[in-house]
Design a protein around this nucleic acid. Structure first.
Lengths: 119, 119
DNA sequence: ACGCACCGCTAGATATAGTTAGCAGTCTCG
DNA sequence: CGAGACTGCTAACTATATCTAGCGGTGCGT
């Protein structure tokens, strides 16, 4: 396989460029709004660099786009394994309404259920 | 304001460390799964570095977490909208590994935790 | 023809992301 | 008491993200 990342970096760059042109902004204008240098933005648009999360978000804001849009374009949400329906454990772990101890306890209960069902 | 990014980098690191520990993984194990070096993962967890999108996604995959979760934690969605907590309850209800009674019991425990935290 | 204000891009420097090698501590087994 | 297999961490290096300075082109008013 020929580096699937490069393809994403390319696609992201082209996407940004198109969005910028649709917004009628010059490279320098968008660069200033996003607080990055204009040559760097140029390189990003041409797929020469993968911007950091910070820069990605700044660009999204400057373009008035939701940050997730750029992220999706950057390949963040795509082809990773899709275990969506069975994701109880990750949901518990990521739940901000629970403390670490509560997560542990809840996961322990959950696992014991699953284990007992597999017998 | 004293660099709001550093706070996010810190929070992201701590979040990853907690998730790793909940998943019962050593630093080296997670590092290998995410295909980053273990010292680097150590530094990320301690907030010394802001990982790139690529690394962030790899870590999310390795932890079995949806990539958006880490992204939200990384401050990607911060200022405008707040991160939507991802739904633990639907995940439990949709889990085919649990019986109806087990779901009820687990949900009861979960709700009692959340309720006690809101007091 | 000028000047000049913009456009996007290149080159070379600096800052930070990410690496490999190795250290000190803890635990277990003989 | 070692020996070996873990744990997380430090140090020093390389790779890449990002900056500053400056180039050549295009269009417009004089």
């Amino acid at each position: 396989m020929t580096d699937p990342w490069q393809a994403h970096v390319d696609a992201l760059g082209q996407f940004i460029r198109v969005q910028r042109q649709l917004a009628q902004l010059s490279l320098r204008e968008l660069a200033e709004r996003a607080r990055v240098s204009n040559p760097y933005l140029s390189q990003i648009e041409r797929g020469l660099h993968e911007p950091s999360v910070r820069v990605l978000k700044a660009i999204a804001n400057a373009l008035g786009l939701p940050a997730e849009t750029l992220l999706a374009e950057a390949g963040l949400l795509e082809d990773d394994d899709e275990a969506a329906p069975l994701a109880t454990e990750p949901a518990i772990r990521a739940d901000v309404a629970l403390s670490a101890e509560q997560k542990d306890a809840l996961l322990a209960v959950y696992r014991s259920y699953v284990a007992s069902n597999q017998r």
